[in-house]
Simulated assay, not measured.
Amino acid sequence: MALRISHLTVDSHDAYAQSHWWSAALGWSEDPEDPNLPGHEECMIFAPDGRQRLLFIEVPEDKTVKNRLHLDLVPTDTSREAEVERLLGLGATQLADHRRPDGGGWVTLADPEGNELCVLRSELDRPDPYAHLVR
């Protein structure tokens, strides 16, 4: 038996606003045949190849504790520092700085609703340790 992850779902107060923030952060887009609209309780965005998806669903509860699951993001065509600054400019908040003098480490941010994410060292600055898994 084998399973594939269909998409990652994120609880949100404003699914539409979250879908737009994450679209700008990741360079992803909505389905043009099923656009996300203000007031939609469910808003999905897609990676450029359509294979990865994030679904934002509105829930009434506030986020009260640290996420049990978060995204680790790797810049593909710019530095970690440039991406952190770009995300802060989009409305992220910096929670912690775990960068090391050797260039390793990460920066922990929160999206506009407080969901944690980490920005790792850029692909330009390190070899991909998982390259052997790509087919």
Rank of each mutant, 00 (worst) to 15 (best):
R4D: 08
I5C: 11
S6V: 08
S6A: 13
L8W: 12
V10E: 00
D11Q: 04
D14A: 06
D14W: 11
A15N: 00
A17Y: 00
S19L: 07
W21T: 05
A24P: 10
A24E: 04
A25Q: 07
P32K: 00
N36A: 03
N36H: 07
N36G: 06
P38M: 02
G39Q: 06
L54M: 05
L55M: 10
E58Y: 10
E58N: 05
D62H: 15
K63P: 08
K63A: 11
V65E: 14
K66A: 12
K66H: 13
R68Q: 14
H70A: 14
H70T: 09
L71V: 06
L71I: 14
L73C: 08
V74E: 04
T76S: 07
E83D: 06
L87R: 06
L90H: 02
Q94I: 02
L95R: 12
A96M: 14
P101Q: 02
D102E: 05
G105M: 10
W106M: 08
W106Q: 10
V107G: 01
T108E: 09
A110V: 05
P112D: 03
G114R: 01
L117Q: 02
V119S: 12
S122P: 09
S122A: 12
E123S: 09
D125V: 00
P127Y: 14
P127L: 12
D128F: 01
D128V: 13
A131D: 09
L133K: 12
L133Q: 14
L133A: 14
